[in-house]
Structure formats: C-alpha cells, structure tokens
C-alpha cells in the first residue's frame, strides 16, 4: 500500500512539473527552483506534512521534498536554539543530501565524459 501511495503522490507531483514544462516552456532549472521553494512554503503553511504522511517517499523524493526537509530543519533549529537555528537548521537537515550531491557529482564528472547520442 505504501508503494502505491508513493507512486501516486510522486507521479502527481511530477505531473504538475510536466504541465508547467509543456504549457509554459519553463526550463528545468526554473522548475527545480520553483519546486524547492514551493516545498518550503507549503511546509511552512502546513500543507506538505500531510502529503508526506500519506505518500512517504512519493512526497520526499521530488524536489518539493528537499524544500520540505529544509523547512522542517529550520523549524527544528528554531525549536532547539532560537533565532540562530533558523539560519543553521535548514542546511543541517539536508546536509547529507547536499554533500552527497557534491561528492557524487564531482566523482562522476572526473570519471566520465559527455557523449553525443545517436
């Protein structure tokens, strides 16, 4: 059941992205920025948490989920250490993902070369 929920929620979030991509000709960079920011905002106003509870990874894997982790981290930071936690909390909550992206990105770029496709 969890898998079906994840599939449905994840698919639906990607569908929203596709509608933007097809109808507004937004570039992937803009879509990624929009989704991460939307994730923060939706989490802040309490709309994203229920989606995560229902969809699990389906809500956490799309970039809105990255925004969700950032916002949740910031709130946790504030709860634990006040106003300064707003600065440190977001990155702390997502540090693993960011570091993974940097190191894997760097290693892959070292090993492989770009290719043209047929």
């Amino acid at each position: 059941m969890n898998y079906i929920n994840a599939f449905l929620v994840g698919g639906a979030i990607c569908l929203v992205g596709q509608i933007l991509l097809s109808k507004t000709r937004m570039t992937p960079a803009r879509i990624l920025v929009l989704f991460v920011t939307a994730g923060v905002v939706l989490t802040a106003i309490g709309l994203y948490e229920p989606l995560v509870e229902f969809g699990g990874a389906g809500a956490e894997v799309p970039l809105t989920g990255f925004g969700y982790s950032l916002a949740k981290g910031a709130f946790k930071g504030v709860d634990e250490s006040g106003i300064l936690g707003a600065l440190s909390g977001g990155v702390m909550g997502t540090a693993g993902g960011i570091a993974a992206a940097v190191i894997f990105g760097y290693l892959v770029a070292l090993i492989f070369s770009p290719k043209t496709k047929k």
Binding site: P28, A29, L32, V33, V36, T37, G39, V40, V41, T43, A44, L63, F66, G67, L70, A71, G73, A74, F75, G77, V78, G82, I83, G85, A86, L87, G89, G90, V91, I98, A101, V102, G105, Y106, A109, L110
Partner: peptide, 28 residues
Amino acid sequence: VGAKLFTIAGPVLVYGISASVIAGIVYY
C-alpha cells in the same frame, strides 16, 4: 568541474536555503 557543478544546483540551493531561513524566522 568545480564551478559548473553549481550551474543549476546553485540557484536551487540559493532559493531553497533562503526560503527555509525566512520560514524559520517567521516561525520564530
């Protein structure tokens, strides 16, 4: 490699982190 790694990831982090800091301050 080092600089271009952040061509698209850069803006994502800039807006994501900024939004989370603002959200944290509002929450505070």
